[in-house]
Structure formats: structure tokens, C-alpha cells
């Protein structure tokens, strides 16, 4: 800013100019600070009611309880059914999205011509742009009846919800993995070809291992997205919290379940008044969900950063 304090003033009143500059700077800084405030706001509001909740229901009862019944007496606030149901959807959708996403990334990065890429990439972006409630609708009215032809599925079931969540997170895996594969230097590929390797061998033996941290980062991010996914699961999988045990593990995916997010929606729809235990339970689940996804996103960022250092 030294150029404003010169003796010859060519552009008007330097003092009012620098006051205006400082004002603008302060305003912009406030905007930027707001995003930090949002993070603290989220953590603060979640903690505030969650701590209140844990004075009424012990953390042990919450984290190890196997019965979730916040609205029907006898009340019970065991979060394990919700956690296991969330895990079920996450694992099933990962079984779809991770292999398909990596295979898409390999195809787009190593095989596809520019022409084919220019069609397929926007195509995958469309998958990410469709609202999640629409995916839930697809699961409920099209995929479940289709599954019903061959499998004993009920109207709301974990399987069709997992299928739509899986499709929804493919673009997340493919785009981040593809970025990682594209930034593998060509010299590595050429070294592979120089040794007589085929394109298949170079893709799977050189490019994929070299892009491993980017691929892992995309996996973690996609899993985190599946854990936090709400409307698709609410609409397609229904709202019946089911503790998964050895006796029902084979049938649970054909029946209605309730994930953490879905339980939050059920409590949210029921027009809760502030101060009730059920209302505070909302924030306790919210805090659990936020903590899990926050840690996973952080891991994903750290893994990705490590990868960037390798090739830049």
C-alpha cells in the first residue's frame, strides 16, 4: 500500500481512498470468517443439545443400546441399530460404487478417446446432479418392483436403497480416481511399455498402484457420502430400525431398515418441541454422524495431499 503514501497524489484524496480500501478489506475478511463461524456453529449447536441429551441418557446406554424407540413408550435411545443399518447401506453401496467407479476411472483415463470421454464424463456428472429424493423415488417405485420379481423384498428395503446410493456415488469415485490416474506421469507408462508390457499390464500394474492414494482418497470420500446420504435411504429403505444380529443378517437387506440420517428425518417430521429428550436425541445422532463424516473427510484430504506431493 506504499504507493498511496507518495507525495504526488495523482488519483484523488489518498486518505479517503485508503479508508475505503480498509473498509472493503474488513468486509471481505468478515465474509471469509463466516465460513469458519459456520463450522463452529455446527459443532457448537450439536454439542449444546447433545451434552444435554447425555445428562438424561447415559452415553453407555446410547452407544451400546440395541433398541431405538424415541417416540413410542417405553422410550429407548440405543443407537446401535441405526449405526449397523447405516453400515449395511454403506457396505452394499460401496460394493457397487467402488469397483464400478475405479473401472470407469481406468477407462476414462487410459482407454477412452477424447470423443468418447466428452460424452461419458458429462454422463457421469448427470448421476451426481440428480436430487437424492429423486433417487429414493427411483428405488421405491422402479427398482424395488424389479427386484421383487426374483428376490423376497418388501416395499421398503435396504437393497434397493443401497443400489441407488451406489449409483449416486459412482461419479465421486470415478472423478477423483481419474484425476489421480491422469496425473501419473507418462514416463512411468512409457517405462512399462519399454519393458514389453501390454496396455492392460501398464494400466493395472503401473497406473493404478501409482495413483493408489488418490483412489483410496476417493473411496473414503464416497463412503463418507454414503454414510451421510439421507433422502434416498429415507424414501427407499423406510423407517424400521433393525438391530442386525447373526440370526437376521441374511434377510435384513430385503427388509425395511432405518439409518442414522433416516432416524433424524423421522424425528424432524414429527414436529418436535424443543427440550424433549427426543429433540435432544436428534442432536446426539447429528453429532455422531458429523464426527464420523468429519474424520473420514479429513482422512481423505490428508491421503490426497500426500499423493499430490509425490508427483508435483
Amino acid at each position: 500500500m506504499s504507493r498511496e503514501s507518495t507525495h504526488v497524489d495523482l488519483t484523488g484524496d489518498a486518505v479517503s481512498r485508503s479508508a475505503k480500501e480498509r473498509g472493503v478489506w474488513l468486509l471481505l475478511l468478515t465474509c471469509a470468517a463466516l465460513s469458519v463461524f459456520v463450522t463452529f456453529g455446527i459443532i457448537g449447536t450439536l454439542l449444546f443439545d447433545a451434552i444435554d441429551f447425555f445428562t438424561e441418557v447415559s452415553p453407555v446406554a446410547f452407544f451400546t443400546g440395541t433398541d431405538w424407540s424415541p417416540a413410542i413408550k417405553p422410550y429407548s435411545f440405543g443407537v446401535l441399530p441405526l449405526v449397523t443399518n447405516t453400515l449395511l447401506v454403506t457396505v452394499l453401496s460401496a460394493l457397487i460404487a467402488l469397483p464400478l467407479g475405479v473401472a470407469s476411472a481406468i477407462y476414462l483415463s487410459e482407454y477412452a478417446s477424447d470423443r468418447v470421454r466428452s460424452v461419458l464424463k458429462p454422463g457421469l456428472e448427470v448421476l451426481a446432479g440428480i436430487p437424492t429424493v429423486v433417487y429414493g423415488y427411483f428405488g421405491l417405485v422402479y427398482i424395488t418392483p424389479a427386484l421383487d420379481v426374483v428376490l423376497p423384498v418388501s416395499t421398503f428395503n435396504a437393497l434397493s436403497a443401497s443400489i441407488v446410493v451406489g449409483i449416486m456415488i459412482i461419479p465421486m469415485v470415478s472423478s477423483i480416481s481419474e484425476d489421480a490416474m491422469s496425473s501419473v506421469p507418462d514416463s512411468l507408462r512409457e517405462a512399462g511399455y519399454g519393458l514389453g508390457a501390454t496396455k492392460f499390464e501398464v494400466s493395472t500394474g503401473v497406473v493404478v498402484p501409482a495413483a493408489a492414494s488418490g483412489i483410496v482418497s476417493s473411496f473414503v470420500l464416497a463412503l463418507s457420502r454414503a454414510i451421510g446420504e439421507t433422502m434416498a435411504v429415507v424414501v427407499a429403505a423406510g423407517q424400521s430400525p433393525t438391530m442386525i444380529t447373526a440370526s437376521n443378517v441374511d434377510t435384513v437387506l430385503f427388509n425395511s431398515i432405518q439409518t442414522m440420517t433416516s432416524a433424524m428425518i423421522e424425528l424432524g417430521v414429527s414436529d418436535l418441541s424443543g427440550g424433549t429428550t427426543a429433540y435432544k436425541a436428534l442432536f446426539a445422532i447429528g453429532l455422531t454422524l458429523f464426527s464420523i463424516t468429519f474424520v473420514m473427510n479429513l482422512i481423505s484430504t490428508l491421503v490426497a495431499r500426500r499423493f499430490q506431493e509425490e508427483y508435483q
Binding site: 465460513s35 469458519v36 463450522t39 456453529g41 455446527i42 449444546f48 440420517t261 454422524l289 463424516t293 468429519f294
Partner: peptide, 22 residues
């Protein structure tokens, strides 16, 4: 601030609903 923004982008939408409510 940039790391923070990256993390905010990954917070589940239902959690933002809780923030709005509170």
C-alpha cells in the same frame, strides 16, 4: 479457511438442517 471450506463441503446436508434449526 480453505481447509475448513473443503471440510464444510463434506458435511451431510441433514446436519446443516440441525444448524438451521438451532
Amino acid at each position: 479457511i480453505e481447509i475448513n471450506i473443503g471440510n464444510l463441503a463434506g458435511v451431510p446436508s441433514v446436519v446443516y438442517g440441525l444448524l438451521g434449526l438451532a
